[in-house]
Design a protein around this nucleic acid. Sequence first.
DNA 1: CGATAAATTGACATCACTCAACACCGGTGG
DNA 2: CCACCGGTGTTGAGTGATGTCAATTTATCG
Lengths: 251, 251
Amino acid sequence: MDLAASGKALHQHPFVTRLLQHVNLDPVDLKSLDAIIDGEISIRKRRDLIIDGYVYRKLCFVKDGYAMRYKLLRNGKRQILNVVLPGDIVGIPGSFYERAAYSVTAITDLTMNVCALDAYVQLCYRRPQFGLALSWFAVQEATTYAEHIIDVGRRTPIERLSHFLLELHARLLVVGRAEKTSFVLPFSQEVLADVLGLSVPHLNRMMQRLRSEHLIADSDRKIEFIDVGALQALAHYQPQELAPIPLPKTA
Amino acid sequence: MDLAASGKALHQHPFVTRLLQHVNLDPVDLKSLDAIIDGEISIRKRRDLIIDGYVYRKLCFVKDGYAMRYKLLRNGKRQILNVVLPGDIVGIPGSFYERAAYSVTAITDLTMNVCALDAYVQLCYRRPQFGLALSWFAVQEATTYAEHIIDVGRRTPIERLSHFLLELHARLLVVGRAEKTSFVLPFSQEVLADVLGLSVPHLNRMMQRLRSEHLIADSDRKIEFIDVGALQALAHYQPQELAPIPLPKTA
DNA sequence: CGATAAATTGACATCACTCAACACCGGTGG
DNA sequence: CCACCGGTGTTGAGTGATGTCAATTTATCG
């Protein structure tokens, strides 16, 4: 109900932007979606959205702001699974388990639209395209993780960093949060290091190397790709093109 | 149609075993599923199921045998994303993209039941519980990948190996392919190394260490957990309990 | 302007990789 | 029956990349 004071607002929501990439939703669909939204909430920087070990049964569609999904190990190390961007769903995969296995924390101030997982599932029974959309989202999440495995498993630190920057840029572009060859990087080096499985000093050195080899430039938190081709080659980067969801056969 | 010469055969299929973990499917549901199966096919050891870069639009439900999903990098390194077990779906995530980004190769001889992704999607429109089931599967896939990220990113080699063995055991148990504290490991050390992002010699040393510290015993390819508690502690292992799919509200 | 977070630098130790060689086993063909 | 072979597991030596730890500078924010 908050989501769309006007139908216009709904169309501008980055989650809807992503939905429309692969499903056709008519106005009635959008209204059904709107109907199960509990409201819009804002979260402060550094606040937890999900805590490892606790029950969580919601889907939250991020409207603005950034977060991270991570696991803290008993030895104090932290691995960030992925960064959560506008248009992403907080609650994948946590809400699908009896207890969330990973924490999610806001990195910047963040606003999102909340609905109960159960309500979304009920919507899926009534309008199956939402169940398919959820599958497509979950598959995208899995693919992001897959690339991440390759990053930390078999790419060198400089390759990892390049790959992550390229991928982040691509994800931001989809929801209109990046320019053609540049974007604002809202993450500290500590966060980047924990994403990429590196130590902070080493990450720092790799950043310097990308700069000194004129692959990127950065002032403040703005990253600019100087030579995208070279960067992609270095990172073994391949863009992934999601297939559309097949339409129902009316015949 | 091949899947169930008798209804009995269907129930024994490990994919159905997994489905029934979180959805209730009545006989009509099972029959609908059966109807979209193109047939059962057998694949020889070392044969490719999916090749990186090629179009693939099928879902294959593995009935028996093992495979791996992996990426070959230009520098010749290989990262295995995960191992494919009975009850898993070949085609997640590959079939959801214009071109598959990862290859899948049979590790042992393997049999599976094939259906077109489009046919499955049509089934989802008619019976939304299948769309939800697909979401749940994709989320599980993502979770497996998530643990894998933590493995290669922040766990030491010995922790990684322990964690992988425990997780593999848990997955095999669900589909009745493992004993209470032991199972047959169908993977060579080369495969294990490429799963865990290690070199073969180092993986070998870690195996020896697990043996010498009396955490596991292995003869041939059979792994036995001697001290599960200690192994879980070493690995920071936490079992994950999937939540059931909410039922439709009839009211 | 002070306080806190973030970025950077350097010295150093070590883990895990590389590159070998070698052992073992089962199958296959002479 | 034996020789050969590919696949697999094991061992060793050497080295370089990357983590650790700590100090220092720079930015950010009340």
